[in-house]
C-alpha cells in the first residue's frame, strides 16, 4: 500500500465475501470522512444510576453524561467536544477531547459523553483521578491551540475559551501552540468561510455536519498522529478547490475560531493598531481567488460531470 504525505492511503481491499448488513444511506456511500465507524454507544435499555450520591433514571440510548445533566453534575465537566443539541443526534459523540472523564465503580475512568449508561452504575464526577484527567486533557487541548483570543473572530463566543474560563485555567501546564514557524496558513480562498487550522481542536463536528447532516461530502479528517487535520475529500489543498457549497454548517458547529464566516473573522477582534486576525498567523493561502459568483465552489460545478457513479467522465 502506498501512503502519501497526509497519511492517507489507497483504499484497502475490503473483505470480499463477508456480508455487510448495515443500512447505507445511498447518498453517503462514497463519502470518505476518514473517521471510524463507531458502534452506537447509547444504552440499550433504561437504567438507574447513582451520580455523586444521587439516584438518576435515564432512558434508552442514554450515555452517562445524560445522567449527569439530570442532576446538574455536568457543571464541573468541560465536555468540550460534546455537541449537546436536542435537534440532532447526527453529530457526535466523538469523544475526542476526553474532558468529560468521570470515575465509575464498575469500569474506572470513562468518558461520560460516550460511555453507555448502565443500570446500577455508580458514577463520581469529583474523584481525584477524574478531576486530574479532565484538567490534564483540557490543558492538552490548549497545548495544540493557538490562543490568540484577542485577534480571534470567536472571542467571547468560543467554547474552548468558555471551558478554560470555567475550569479556572490560568496557565495551561503545557503552554499553548505559539510557535509561529509551525503555524498553518489561514485558508482565505473561499469568500464565505475562512479556515484557521491553528485553532482547530479536531472535534470532528464540522466533518459530521458536512457529511451526516448536510450530506455534502466535502470535509474529512486526514493524516494521523501529529499530522491529523481537517482536509477535503477531493484532495484539494484549498477550500475553493473543494466541492464546498458554502452552506455554513461547519462554521455553525465549530466550537472555536477555526471555521468562521468571512464577515465575522474580525468581528470580535480587539481594535488595537497592527493586531488583526490575519496577521496573528501572518500567512494565508488562496488569496489569488477574487471571489466567486455563487456559493458553490467551481469544483462543485465540475463535480456533476466527473462524479457519476462509475467515475467515467464524458470527454466532450
Amino acid at each position: 500500500m502506498s501512503t502519501d504525505h497526509t497519511g492517507r492511503s489507497e483504499s484497502l481491499p475490503s473483505v470480499p465475501s463477508i456480508d455487510d448488513p448495515r443500512p447505507h444511506p445511498p447518498l453517503t456511500e462514497h463519502f470518505n470522512t476518514g473517521t471510524a465507524t463507531d458502534p452506537d454507544v447509547g444504552a440499550r435499555e433504561t437504567s438507574s444510576l447513582t451520580v455523586d450520591g444521587e439516584e438518576v433514571n435515564v432512558g434508552e440510548e442514554a450515555t452517562i453524561i445524560d445522567a449527569l445533566e439530570e442532576v446538574g453534575a455536568d457543571e464541573d465537566l468541560s465536555a468540550l467536544c460534546y455537541y449537546d443539541r436536542e435537534d440532532t443526534d447526527r453529530i457526535g459523540p466523538r469523544s475526542e477531547c476526553r474532558t468529560c472523564m468521570v470515575e465509575t465503580d464498575e469500569h474506572g475512568l470513562v468518558p461520560s459523553c460516550s460511555h453507555p449508561a448502565e443500570d446500577g452504575m455508580t458514577v463520581r464526577t469529583n474523584s481525584t483521578e477524574a478531576e486530574e484527567a479532565r484538567s490534564v486533557n483540557l490543558d492538552l487541548v490548549l497545548s495544540d491551540h493557538n490562543l490568540r483570543c484577542t485577534t480571534c473572530g470567536k472571542n467571547g463566543r468560543c467554547e474552548l475559551q468558555d471551558a478554560a474560563i470555567e475550569a479556572d485555567v490560568e496557565v495551561p501546564r503545557y503552554g499553548v501552540f505559539d510557535n509561529r514557524d509551525e503555524y498553518e496558513p489561514i485558508d482565505e480562498s473561499s469568500p464565505f468561510i475562512q479556515i484557521d487550522r491553528n485553532k482547530c481542536i479536531l472535534c470532528n463536528r464540522c466533518v459530521e455536519a458536512c457529511n451526516d447532516v448536510q450530506v455534502e461530502g466535502v470535509l474529512r479528517i486526514e493524516g494521523s498522529g501529529p499530522d491529523t487535520r481537517i482536509g477535503f475529500q477531493n484532495g484539494a489543498d484549498e477550500m475553493m478547490d473543494s466541492t464546498c457549497v458554502s452552506c455554513g454548517h461547519c462554521a455553525t458547529v465549530c466550537p472555536t475560531g477555526s471555521l468562521v464566516e468571512q464577515d465575522y473573522t474580525d468581528a470580535a477582534t480587539i481594535p488595537l493598531p497592527g493586531f488583526t486576525q490575519e496577521n496573528s498567523i501572518g500567512k494565508t493561502i488562496g488569496e489569488d481567488y477574487d471571489g466567486q459568483p455563487n456559493p458553490a465552489t467551481p469544483m462543485k460545478g465540475n463535480q456533476t460531470y466527473e462524479d457519476d457513479a462509475l467515475g467515467e467522465a464524458d470527454d466532450d
Partner: peptide
C-alpha cells in the same frame, strides 16, 4: 478490513464481540 482509507480507533464499549466487522 472494511476498506477505510484512514485508520483510527473506534469507540468502545460496545466492543467488537457485540458490534464488530460490518456491525
Amino acid at each position: 478490513m472494511e476498506g477505510a482509507d484512514r485508520l483510527e480507533a473506534r469507540l468502545r464499549p460496545p466492543g467488537p464481540s457485540e458490534v464488530g466487522l460490518y456491525g
